[in-house]
């Protein structure tokens, strides 16, 4: 554990809670892509199956349980509790174009050809692109609420901080995981355009427009 890893995790946690609270307080999920949230629920489920097979640390277990719980709570709010406010017409990204190639890639390129490892790899690849339906939705409507941009900023910052964590771990522990690193770079790059807009526009205008 280093400072980049910890702040990355906290940034991720902040993003998840910001989104959950935003939907809960406003009693609306307008402008939020339910498809991205389903993808994140799949990401956490397939990655954290090791909760059932191995114990790493109390911190590790707690965070995994919180992430999974919040992901499903978010999906529940969007598709059940506040379904009437869900903007399905604008959430039109074809997720099969992500899930199918990612599934194929995780079978082809993985550390070990075993069910748990392939599912872990699938979750890493899927996470890197899971935000695309949300970004697509924002580009389609041309605007996002300020709080949604804070959510996206924290979510993007988390993987960027993990990149520094991986650099740290490579230098000080000689550890690297090429699958996580390449997917993490892809994931961070997808947010670059958004980061730029967030910094130059997001802090000063409301509502946020692309």
């Amino acid at each position: 554990m280093n400072v980049f890893r910890l702040t990355g995790d906290l940034s991720h946690l902040a993003a998840i809670i910001i989104l959950l609270l935003k939907i809960w307080k406003s009693r609306s999920c307008a402008g939020i892509s339910g498809k991205s949230q389903i993808l994140f629920a799949i990401v956490f489920t397939t990655r954290y199956l090791d909760l059932l097979t191995s114990f790493i640390s109390l911190y590790n277990t707690c965070m995994k349980v919180i992430y999974i719980g919040c992901a499903y709570a978010t999906v529940y709010l969007i598709y059940a509790k506040f379904r009437a406010t869900y903007d399905g017409n604008h959430d039109s990204f074809r997720v099969e174009f992500l899930v199918v190639p990612v599934g194929g890639l995780s079978v082809l390129i993985n550390h070990d050809f075993s069910p748990l490892e392939i599912l872990w790899t699938f979750s890493i690849y899927l996470e890197s692109v899971a935000i695309l339906p949300q970004l697509f939705m924002i580009s389609k409507t041309g605007e996002a609420e300020t709080i949604t941009t804070h959510y996206l900023f924290c979510l993007g910052l988390y993987r960027a901080l993990y990149l520094f964590n991986w650099i740290w771990r490579f230098y000080f522990e000689g550890f690297f995981d090429m699958i996580a690193i390449v997917a993490g770079v892809v994931q961070t790059v997808l947010y670059c355009d958004f980061f730029y807009l967030y910094v130059t526009k997001g802090w000063f205008s409301r509502p946020y427009r692309l």
Partner: peptide, 10 residues
């Protein structure tokens, strides 16, 4: 091996 993921990360 060193390049194997250790599953400690989230």
């Amino acid at each position: 091996s060193d390049s194997q993921n250790d599953k400690d990360e989230l």
